[in-house]
Write a protein that binds this DNA or RNA. Structure first.
Ligand SMILES: [Zn+2]
Ligand SMILES: [Zn+2]
Ligand SMILES: [Zn+2]
Ligand SMILES: [Zn+2]
Lengths: 138, 138
DNA sequence: TTTAATATGCAACTGAGTTGCAAAAACAGA
DNA sequence: TCTGTTTTTGCAACTCAGTTGCATATTAAA
């Protein structure tokens, strides 16, 4: 994992620093989009300052290694981009009961046909509903 | 417009107050999702306090007259829900150059097939790209 | 090594949305 | 129309997530 993180950094010419490796390692393991705070928690005592985490995430987004996930929440969530298609990531499902968000990586959606003259860069889909667990416990 | 606003309020049993009528009137006229601040600007000097605007918008969302638009921006944007389907609103296009957002009301998308046991409440699509104007002026 | 370029940590700041509470407006009943 | 109760509003102070400026530390190239 750590090795993979280092490779990713090299591949986009970002200097290999402790914070970056640690943050990328968390992202590599995460099953769903994570916040700055969750990243810090995961890393534990040696976690970088929150400013550094944000700056690192923004660097990674700029290099297109990471995407900001499209959730309707106040706090930003990030995930690795390595499984996204050129113009589309997988949809995200957020349960309106328990607020948990899940990736739906296997789903693919057609791209919206834009009006003439427009260029598509990225399409994102968000779904709100009740998750399986919450539905049963009602 | 104002008349229509009053009707809408009555239809969901919300008391008819000046702020609510004014805010709904702005929403009825808006061609794209608007923020608290834009609503205040539109109303002008007699605009309600921002707390009131937020509270009103949340009331209207609760009654499903209004939806919070899912744009990847820090500030919340709202629009009338009256043209949304049961499980899906129209997609929104945001230009990464000029940051303008447009509704794409005529586009319809298939609903994602959720895993067994999940309930779909609402699906939303967001598109990022370059708008026609920005593309020409480059 | 040494050095120049880049990244980090810290503390103070910003801006959007929230909270608590007293004053004002809505509306139902007399 | 008046009255009383309920609901809504305005204000000021607050919160929370993310940002900024700048001094210090780290990186990696020479
Ligand atoms: Zn749930
Ligand atoms: Zn995901
Ligand atoms: Zn544009
Ligand atoms: Zn719209």
């Amino acid at each position: 994992m750590k090795q993979k993180a280092i490779e990713l950094l090299n591949s986009v010419n970002l200097r290999q620093t402790q914070p970056r490796v640690a943050i990328l390692t968390v992202l590599l393991k995460a099953p769903a989009p994570v916040t700055q705070e969750q990243i810090a928690e995961q890393i534990g005592d040696s976690a970088p300052n929150k400013t550094t985490i944000y700056r690192t995430l923004m660097n990674l987004v700029e290099k297109d290694l990471v995407h900001k996930a499209y959730l309707q929440e106040r706090t930003w969530h990030f995930e690795l981009a390595h499984h996204c298609g050129q113009h589309q990531c997988h949809p995200h499902f957020t349960c309106s009961e328990c607020q948990q968000t899940q990736c739906l990586p296997e789903v693919s959606m057609p791209l919206v046909k834009l009006p003439k003259g427009y260029v598509m860069e990225r399409q994102q889909v968000r779904i709100e509903g009740i998750c399986c667990d919450c539905r049963e416990n009602k």
